[in-house]
Design a protein around this nucleic acid. Structure first.
Lengths: 158, 158
DNA sequence: CACATTTAACTTGTGCACGATGTAATCGTG
DNA sequence: CACGATTACATCGTGCACAAGTTAAATGTG
């Protein structure tokens, strides 16, 4: 097969599963989450709960709105999730005195202590991914650009 | 900052959200699925349903087991999903005569016709992603390797 | 200051994901 | 050929995601 036809084939969009970047992305995301599961089970967290804890460990008390902005998740997801974290004793929800609409999420002592146990998670995942530092960095850059591109395109078509 | 410290920093694993490749992956996957949503709404499909239809358009009648193997999804996900496709009139579920345990999923006329309307979806997504052919190919390769690596690592630790 | 608008959060409903459990059909081995 | 193991699928329960609608507080404008 000559090079011209190959190049053209790359831009031909098919309905074959293995041609879809979206499927590789979807499958990789679920595979990585599955690898997290046993590690997070030990901490009593699900993967989305872990992400919320990352935000809190990094920023301390934040309004739910800011958690949503950081993780690109809406209240329909976060409200029940954070209530489960509260039931687990890891966070407290407190209405702001200055603005009665906003609810601040605070770490409890136990939630703060969990951070130390969580430090082993990123290295374990890093080892499981088994990518070079360059590949990791390239993947991160590309995935961010991809997310930005499709989000911008969605906004344009809305 | 000298190069040694930079290189070391790349391998230092933090709990900062923006250092996590997993989050970039998770966010990108959801962003892409969101971009699919309006396109698939027109076809009356969700994104996972679209993936099942891709398998059927490609292979025709297949056991549910094979759909699961192709998409890495279990029966708990597929059984109700395929029943919804059946309720929508796109597929038929038929028990095999040779092996009464297996259920073959067949396209109906309507399900087959939907393929023509679906042909516009991959180009639209391709345009929204806005990556060069090289980047797309590189991303696909890297994401597959990532999924393989973490799955293998999970199997090892199980 | 009244009042329409906006904002932060909650609620409800649908549809994945996935672990755990159950069941019937088939297979493998003695 | 008996019978324990395996296989294909279904069911149930929990926890996301996300759209749509609701409520109450804050804001802006006449």
């Amino acid at each position: 097969m000559d090079r011209t036809r190959e190049a053209a084939a790359e831009r031909e969009f098919t309905l074959l599963l293995d041609d879809q970047l979206c499927f590789a992305l979807y499958a990789a995301s679920r595979a990585v989450t599955s690898r997290y599961r046993p590690l997070l089970d030990d901490l009593g967290l699900t993967y989305p709960q872990y992400l919320v804890m990352l935000v809190l460990w990094q920023h301390g008390a934040v309004p739910i709105k800011d958690v949503g902005a950081a993780l690109q998740l809406d209240y329909g997801t976060l409200t029940p999730l954070i209530k489960r974290l509260e039931a687990a004793g890891l966070v407290r929800r407190e209405r702001s005195a200055r603005d009665e609409r906003t609810v601040h999420v605070n770490l409890t002592e136990e939630g703060d202590r969990l951070r130390d146990r969580a430090r082993d998670v990123p290295p374990a995942i890093g080892a499981a991914m088994n990518l070079s530092p360059e590949e990791t960095k390239a993947a991160m850059t590309l995935l961010r650009r991809l997310a930005d591109n499709v989000s911008a395109d969605l906004a344009r078509h809305a």
